[in-house]
Design a protein around this nucleic acid. Structure first.
Lengths: 127, 127
DNA sequence: ATTAAAGTGCTAATAAATTAGCACTTCGGA
DNA sequence: TCCGAAGTGCTAATTTATTAGCACTTTAAT
């Protein structure tokens, strides 16, 4: 089961921010939070996330900089995996098609070409 | 902000089940839950989710069958959007590449061909 | 070296989520 | 028709999450 499932609402919001930004101080997290709670609350939550093993911190001058404990690669992988299995019955192809559709105009020609290449490669390796 | 962010841990677990299965009774949700709580708990949560507008139910004989209130299309779209923006800096192309990589062998040749076509179409429309 | 600003470590209070339990309904078979 | 099994509607208890506040530390500028 996805570890994301064991986080409380705030904890998840905060982990999302850490993942999105790569790293952040308590003040930065506070700034990024929707309907921001008190500063104390954020600090406490960061401490808890660390205790639970979801994040770690290093000292930088007087303050702590928090970083997710799972690598970006792993985090990405498991986030995608969760969406695919929850919303697309496990079909990666369907998920890709949906992504393509929502992205539409936002994908540059270069990116599309690159994707073509990747798929071509996948086909070769597949057979 | 993503509504998924306002759900508690259990609430989110339950919504995931509803989305994955399309619909479910309290008993079915209970069966699908990891570290399942009591039956009462599940029923209460379903009631709360309904109050909050995330799900609705219809009666089926003696029991209630719950269904997510957002359409599968919308739910998929916003789940993907969240992952892309949180874990891929908003880059759909990167997300697609990651999907392709994790899927690898699991994609049939037919599916890959279909994706090629979709991308080709996107390229045409883009220019 | 002194000090104000910005940070952190705690502990304890408050609010929200989660659960239990019991009384009342619905359903289907004897 | 009557009964037991399976369900639901509540209310109230309990456990977790969230927050506030105060004492101590670090930093950087005077």
């Amino acid at each position: 089961m996805n570890p994301e499932h064991n986080l409380s609402r705030r904890e998840r919001q905060i982990m999302d921010i850490l993942h999105a930004q790569g790293q952040a101080t308590a003040a930065a997290v506070l700034a990024a939070l929707p309907a921001p709670p008190g500063y104390s609350a954020v600090r406490a939550l960061l401490r808890i996330l660390e205790e639970k093993g979801h994040a770690r911190h290093r000292r930088e001058g007087a303050r702590y900089v928090y970083v997710p404990r799972t690598s970006p690669e792993l985090a990405r992988r498991s986030a995608l995996q969760r969406v695919v299995s929850t919303f697309f019955q496990g079909s990666v192809a369907q998920a890709m098609a949906a992504l393509l559709e929502t992205a539409d105009t936002q994908l540059s020609d270069t990116e599309l070409t690159r994707l073509q290449q990747l798929i071509k490669k996948a086909r070769k390796e597949g057979r």
